[in-house]
């Protein structure tokens, strides 16, 4: 049973001075699934992933990857594992191809035509002969994917892979992860965006200040999610509040700026809107505040949504 697990991390803890960056975290990733580690900035996601790669030594807890551990197997623990931590870093004075070929040497050798294929895949063939120092952020990110794929991994570990990418880059990255997963690759990724994890992951661990705030299936999370919220702006907000108080299942409060925030099940909200129209309160704006899962994420991690959006 244990050998089915791609990642089996139990009770992993790491402190930096007095700060507990990762506090008793247990994560089990089944072979073949896409697993998300979700949490706001500073939650400990990167530190946890660094421990998987043996970059950081845990204070306590055990980590097994495909049933191998750093203590027993050393660097062989990383056989079949690839990925990157934060934004991928390369040698700026070497070309993209030289970087890949050199890292291939550290993998035990890589065929030249394999490097060509991978460069083609991440769309860097034309720039492969240029020094990486001149690459854009997005190109370096793609080279990071290439450097991971030449290892022909069974487990891909990606730390906030969409960070710093433009919307098109984010879309491409998510599509790539889905394509890799469809091919049977196990993917463990971290993110601070609920929508990303919701879109591509099967299971999730939500981290908060080093600890685990939730772990389980995305479907479970959906069942826990609060009712959706809407920002409402009307010609008569006070009248709209009164109507809300009289409508069962609906809660309305004054929003942070002007207008109201209304929450309730979708069906009740639509009756409420009809009631407003009947009372001749005119709607100026009606927009969902955030998705219920996002709302839940903010609740679980104790983050202030306003702050998170500003960041």
């Amino acid at each position: 049973m244990d050998s089915e697990l791609a990642v089996d991390a139990v009770g992993v803890t790491k402190t930096f001075g007095s700060l507990c960056a990762v506090d008793d975290v247990t994560v089990k990733v089944e072979a073949g699934e896409v697993y998300g580690v979700l949490g706001p900035n500073g939650a400990g996601k990167t530190t946890f992933l660094r421990m998987l790669f043996g970059l950081v030594r845990p204070d306590s807890g055990t980590i097994r990857i495909f049933d191998r551990s750093w203590a027993a197997d050393g660097v062989a623990t990383l056989d079949g594992v690839a990925g990157f931590i934060e934004s991928p870093a390369f040698y700026p004075y070497l070309t993209g191809r030289q970087n890949l070929e050199g890292l291939g040497l550290l993998d035990g050798g890589v065929r030249r035509d394999r490097v060509d294929e991978i460069l083609e895949l991440v769309d860097l063939t034309d720039r492969a002969g240029d020094a990486v120092g001149g690459y854009s952020y997005g190109m370096r990110q793609r080279l990071g994917v290439a450097a991971s794929l030449i290892r022909e991994p069974r487990l891909l570990v990606l730390d906030e892979p969409a960070n710093g990418l433009d919307p098109a880059g984010i879309r491409d990255m998510r599509a790539l992860v889905r394509r890799l997963a469809a091919r049977g690759l196990t993917v463990l990724l971290s993110s601070h965006h609920m929508d990303e994890v919701e879109e591509i992951c099967d299971n999730v661990t939500i981290m908060r200040q080093g600890g685990v705030a939730f772990h389980g299936a995305i479907a479970e999370l959906r069942a826990m999610a609060p009712d959706p919220g809407y920002a409402l702006s009307t010609t008569a907000d006070d009248r709209a509040l009164e109507i809300a108080a009289a409508t069962p299942g609906i809660a309305a409060v004054h929003g942070p700026g002007t207008g109201l925030v209304v929450t309730g099940p979708a069906h009740e909200v639509s009756s409420y809107v009809s009631a407003l129209v009947r009372a001749e309160v005119r709607l100026l704006a009606f927009t969902p505040t955030r998705t219920p899962l996002e709302q839940l994420f903010f609740m679980l991690t104790d983050t202030d949504p306003q702050e998170a959006e500003a960041a």
Binding site: A82, I85, F90, L106
Partner: peptide
């Protein structure tokens, strides 16, 4: 300086 420890130490070569 280049932040490349993580790059080389996540391959199959030990420290």
């Amino acid at each position: 300086q280049h932040g490349t420890w993580k790059t080389v130490l996540t391959r199959s070569t030990s420290r």
